[in-house]
Simulated scan of single mutants.
Amino acid sequence: MKKIQYLILTKSIGYYLNALSYFNLEKAKIQAYQLFSQPRKGKIKKEKLPKTLQSAAFETFEYHNEKFQAYIWKGTRAAAERSEANEDIILLIHGWESNASRWKKLLNYLKPLGKTIIAIDGPAHGLSEGKEFNAPKFAEFINIVTQKYQPKTIIGHSVGGAAVCFYLNKYKDKTIEKVILLGAPSDFKIIANNFVKLLSLNNRIKYKLEKYYFEKFSIDINEFSAHKFAQNFTQKALIAHDSEDKVVLIDEGRKYADAWKNAIYIETKGLGHSLHDADLYQKIVAFIEQ
């Protein structure tokens, strides 16, 4: 029943936008982009902070007059005895309609390494300000944090993984040694086309949106392919994707695996898009410890 209601809602919105496009194409474009870029969930309130984040130290950063939140779990010297120095830093980047608390299960495996762990709330997610979320903007958040903390390992889930690749391509960060992508999309055009298809938007709006993407991000939608960026990356990578992922199809993970010169590829089955799994987490820890 909920699926039918959702289908009716999306098609009704698409019908409205298509009709609007013949009277005011600019307004139709803006409203379509807002639907595309504004998450419906993922925000949290400080007074109802998930327990996972309550144990962290808080640090607030700013990008273009918008504050964004970081959570820091300082590495302990005792736990670091089995690994390298506890000054090593791991940076965690969540995906669409999520927040830093999505790392709850993985944190249980990472903390014993003794390394400092930092997770950030993306634009319009968690405790971060703003209404718009996109990979290029998230990449700017990553840049601000990496300038200060210089992490050696970065882990990105879903669109967070695409943001990591966009960041690496734009800023050529050489301090990051290892990258872990979990269920990450590559081709932005696929994401955009899926949105157009979901709402059954007409070509007038579709082409107007594509032009708007270029104006906003200075990159052609057809050229925003993170796996193509990865062809030039020198970092070691672990790429994990589930064959039954219905949010980001398996082909996206395989593109990364084929393009990244120094990558380990893990294809799971039955974990879906979340990729929460003890065996996978153990492999991630082993990769970090190498």
Rank of each mutant, 00 (worst) to 15 (best):
Q5G: 10
Q5T: 10
K11F: 09
I13P: 02
Y16L: 11
A19G: 08
L20C: 05
L20K: 13
Y22F: 14
F23V: 13
E26F: 13
E26P: 02
K27E: 10
K29C: 05
A32H: 06
Q34V: 07
Q34Y: 11
Q34T: 11
F36T: 10
F36G: 03
S37N: 12
S37R: 13
K41Y: 10
I44G: 01
L49Q: 04
P50T: 00
P50L: 05
L53Q: 04
A56D: 04
E59R: 12
T60C: 10
F61K: 10
E62M: 12
N65C: 09
K67H: 14
Y71R: 03
W73T: 03
K74H: 07
R77H: 12
A78D: 13
A78G: 10
A79N: 15
E81S: 13
E84C: 12
E84T: 15
A85F: 08
L91W: 04
L91E: 04
E97H: 07
E97N: 10
K104P: 08
K105A: 14
Y109C: 06
K111S: 03
L113G: 00
A119W: 08
I120N: 08
D121Q: 06
G122E: 09
P123L: 12
G126A: 06
S128V: 04
S128E: 02
E129I: 10
K131Y: 12
E132Y: 14
N134D: 14
N134F: 11
P136Y: 07
K137E: 13
E140C: 05
F141P: 05
I142V: 11
P151R: 01
T153N: 01
I154N: 03
G156W: 07
S158Y: 06
G160T: 11
G161Y: 06
A162D: 09
A163T: 11
C165S: 12
C165W: 08
Y167I: 01
L168I: 00
Y171S: 01
K172Y: 05
K174P: 06
I176Q: 00
E177Y: 00
K178V: 00
V179Q: 00
L181Y: 06
G183D: 08
G183H: 06
A184T: 15
I190M: 09
I190G: 05
A192P: 07
A192T: 12
N193F: 10
F195W: 06
L199A: 04
N203E: 14
N203C: 02
K208F: 03
E210W: 11
K211C: 10
K211H: 09
E215Q: 14
E215Y: 12
F217G: 10
S218G: 01
D220P: 04
D220G: 07
I221M: 13
H227I: 05
H227V: 08
A230E: 02
N232K: 14
F233I: 04
T234C: 09
T234V: 11
K236V: 05
H241F: 04
H241S: 03
K246R: 13
K246P: 06
R254T: 07
Y256A: 02
Y256H: 02
A259R: 02
W260L: 09
K261C: 05
I264M: 02
K269W: 07
S274C: 03
L275G: 07
D279N: 15
L280H: 04
L280W: 03
Y281P: 00
Y281R: 01
K283S: 08
K283R: 14
I284S: 00
